[in-house]
């Protein structure tokens, strides 16, 4: 969607007002529109509120009455969270804790790897022109079109079996059981086209003087990249980092495919999707589990809203 540029000031942000003196807004202004917006906001918020309240109610209450009954009989407990994280609760063996740890252990490297590798590539494509560099950039750009699904099966075969030509192994099997490596690598690969494209747009517009002065002073390209380009590109890196972090944290498809849902390595969403299918009636477990998984993105959302929106808009066509 929107692209990041170093001079970007007017990025769309939900939390900023711009009073318009004339136009449609005033023409449409009426108490009716206030009511309409209020209504939408309520409809948008109530389902999440129901989730939160249910996750905090005692098990019996949840089973016997709707969550709105809470306002008549407020009982709060953190027992569901304890159960869902450590014990597992009714009919569910083991808690979600291992999956939460997996989510963290998957997301941090799967955010750092692509950002570093993509910014390296973006620097070359923007600042070390060579024959064919435009073509390479275009290919990166064009590959954003390819949906994940196109690569899933062959990539899984590659990771579990390696690649061989005749008797020669050209790509070793990564090994699937209980290792994070396949998910890290898969996320890094799938992030590449968008990451290179967005970071290139930003890095190409950095001031030429700063980079050339360092080069003439005798700094190697690596040095320039590390000491000049990366610090200057921090805003773009931060936006993309937030986007990629959320993307990986919220992802189901890649996590499910490349861990097979195993507790040793599978992230939260794949476990929740499983629970939702098989234990759909134990809402105290499901709602607490779901809330555990959404709380981190929500913290990011409410504390870094401006960067969050920028990152999200920049990356919204990914997949």
């Amino acid at each position: 969607m929107a692209t990041l540029t170093p001079t970007e000031r007017k990025s769309p942000e939900p939390a900023r007002a711009a009073p318009t003196r004339t136009g449609v807004r005033r023409a449409l202004s009426s108490p009716l529109s206030t009511v309409a917006v209020l209504l939408v906001t309520v409809v948008w918020t109530v389902p999440s509120l129901g989730l939160l309240i249910t996750s905090l109610r005692p098990q019996q209450d949840v089973a016997q009455t709707g969550w709105w009954d809470f306002f008549a009989h407020p009982h709060l407990t953190l027992a569901n969270y304890h159960d869902v994280l450590f014990n597992g609760g009714f009919g569910v063996s083991d808690g979600l804790m291992p999956y939460l740890v997996n989510s963290i252990a998957i997301t941090v490297p799967a955010t750092i790897f692509p950002i570093v590798l993509a910014s390296m590539a973006a620097y070359v494509l923007a600042w070390i022109p060579f024959k064919g560099s435009d073509t390479i950039f275009f290919v990166f750009f064009a590959l954003q079109v390819v949906p994940l699904q196109m690569a899933l099966v062959p990539l899984l075969q590659l990771f579990s079996g390696g690649a061989h030509i005749g008797g020669l192994t050209i790509f070793p099997a990564v090994g699937m059981g209980g290792s994070y490596a396949p998910v890290w690598i898969a996320h890094t690969m799938f992030a590449m086209p968008l990451a290179v494209f967005l970071l290139h747009n930003f890095i190409a517009q950095l001031p030429r003087d700063l980079i050339e002065a360092a080069r003439v002073d005798g700094a190697s390209h690596f040095r320039v990249f590390r000491s000049v380009v990366l610090p200057l590109a921090t805003p773009a890196l931060a936006s993309f980092a937030i986007f990629q972090f959320l993307w990986v944290w919220n992802d189901l498809l890649v996590g499910l495919t490349f861990t097979g849902g195993a507790p040793e390595s599978a992230p939260m969403p794949s476990r929740l999707a499983q629970l939702s299918g098989s234990f759909g009636d134990h809402w105290e477990i499901l709602t607490a589990g779901a809330f555990v998984s959404v709380v981190i993105p929500l913290i990011v959302f409410f504390s870094l809203q401006r960067y969050f929106v920028r990152g999200l808009l920049a990356g919204s066509v990914k997949g």
């Binding site: 700063l210 002065a213 003439v216 002073d217 040095r223």
Partner: peptide, 29 residues
């Protein structure tokens, strides 16, 4: 080798102090 550049823009790194900016050349060398 042995060339220095000065541009219309100042080519100073905004996150480094004046001292660190001037010291950058020898550090790169």
């Amino acid at each position: 080798d042995g060339v220095s550049f000065m541009f219309q823009a100042d080519a100073l790194l905004p996150w480094k102090t004046v001292l660190a900016n001037v010291a950058l050349g020898p550090v790169f060398k």
